[in-house]
Design a protein around this nucleic acid. Sequence first.
DNA 1: CTGTTAGCGCTTTCAT
DNA 2: ATGAAAGCGCTAACAG
Lengths: 334, 334
Amino acid sequence: MPVTLQDVAAAAGVSQATAARALNNYGSVSAGAKERVLKAAADLGYETNHVAQALRSGNTRTVNFLPGNIGAPFFARIAHILSGTLEEAGYVLAVSSSYEQVERERSIIESMRARMSPGLIVAPAHRDLHEHLQRLQQRGTAVVAIDRSLAERGIDSITVDNYALGADAAAHLIALGHRTLGLIYDSDDIGSTPDRVRGAAEAIRAAGGTVVAIQAGTDLEMATTRICERLALSSSEPTALIPMDALMTEATIAAIRQLDLRIRTDLSLVAVDDHSLARLLDPPLTVMAQPVDQIGEDAARLMIQRLEGERTDEVVDLRHRAELIVRGSTALRN
Amino acid sequence: MPVTLQDVAAAAGVSQATAARALNNYGSVSAGAKERVLKAAADLGYETNHVAQALRSGNTRTVNFLPGNIGAPFFARIAHILSGTLEEAGYVLAVSSSYEQVERERSIIESMRARMSPGLIVAPAHRDLHEHLQRLQQRGTAVVAIDRSLAERGIDSITVDNYALGADAAAHLIALGHRTLGLIYDSDDIGSTPDRVRGAAEAIRAAGGTVVAIQAGTDLEMATTRICERLALSSSEPTALIPMDALMTEATIAAIRQLDLRIRTDLSLVAVDDHSLARLLDPPLTVMAQPVDQIGEDAARLMIQRLEGERTDEVVDLRHRAELIVRGSTALRN
DNA sequence: CTGTTAGCGCTTTCAT
DNA sequence: ATGAAAGCGCTAACAG
């Protein structure tokens, strides 16, 4: 039913080969032939069949995006940028959530291979389990990691410098006179938080301050309870807090409220990740904002360059700096 | 280089046809042959080539999702559900943002056709310009609309009842004794807001109340300014406000703060769309929560049924009810 | 500059 | 139950 290249060629009175050359302008075609082909294609309403093209040429022009959860704001915004940039270059973006499970990551990668996807942009589910990603790359798929660097493993990576993020957050508080800082994180070995914690802790110690580490777990309610306990019991009470991700920020604010303390007056707070509502909290949150759009843009561009063979140099390891946005939740220590 | 069906067939000492039958269990294959084929496939590490399969069978098992902006929380969460549910059924989800522009919607639909995608889940960019969607459906692609119903145009739709949403929000406020309600929205003819505004307005009038319509525009700052003006000048001051989407909520809260008024005490507020931070605002926001996951789940299931031919009945028009979650931003009129 | 010829890897009649 | 053969629609050598 659909119009094929063959139909166009017949209508234009040329061979399929010539029609293909005219349509995709490569090789050489006489002006006359080209014109007739283009006209025939337009008249018949011809549309390239990308599937046939892909099978024959071995290139599906589809890039996969595999974050932990495509529904999370950080990854969703990246997906938006990725799809826009890739589309301009003629690629399509396919997405899945890995749920931070290596097993799912693996199975999705298999299905990618079956679908001949030439590129994968992934937020690796695990720091150490990445042989499947390396193997994928060795077999010829372009792989770009975001959020967690795998550059040491030979995989292009676009991340934010989480160590610096932690250090910068701490430095801000230290500059305000705080000396005992509470670092609030879910668990010891998940995602980007360990680096953030290390960065903050070292900055605090270097300034002669005291680190109060609060490992609160990954569940909102439990985390709130734990933070409450620690805040209430602590003999060396922190005067400032750094919750290391969005969930911890929620738990921390909830805890502060339960204890009837006030942000800024009783406790300074630097959160991670900006958010439209962060500005509307009372007081508005001082945050470390990750350059989300930048990461998406870079990842897409790098991917395109790798796929087009415009770039064949060593593995790229871009670390962006998070930006401190000072608003109202941090104040001089009183 | 990659292992093909041919290799497997050869290794198992059968024809390609038999190998295919064994691998995809259809037709009839003797137990012995089947076993040998399966073993050969496993030994050689055979993986189906979906592209070839798609070209030959005409089914790519790829569903496209085309929201206004995949980076927006509402759509991102839906994407997450969609990809999970579709994957279980062996489909892949491809996404793009239409930027609410019909033109982009059209061009993406073309590229879908070229890629032989059998299904589209779309948040229509426009209420009236939808012939391209109808045409797509007529040509055999399964189309499901979300967020805005196109059921009258013959396209399956899963939406929330925005009229009821507006009415329910207003009813809550009316029950609290409010009589003059401010309805805050960006513009007259964008997305789901007109229905919400109508629903709220009619509920208010039916209760003998007064509607203060505040059309604030689509830009956050400008909207804030306009809301400030209207709130300050209005001779018949509203005692409660309903901002009709997330952006309007932000603008409204900013405006209230600028005017040094207090939510709940001076003005009651019902926002649309729940949000983890809504609970952390002071006071926590009373909201109309849309059943996001439900919509995603329904859209995916319906799409699968249509694609598998398990459902061939009339056009589906599912309207979910948004849920009122009462928190602290609404109070009895004083 | 253009046509012919082979397939890409798979499914699907149609015989056997 | 199985095999042979014919493509799906396109690209890419290779001739001419």
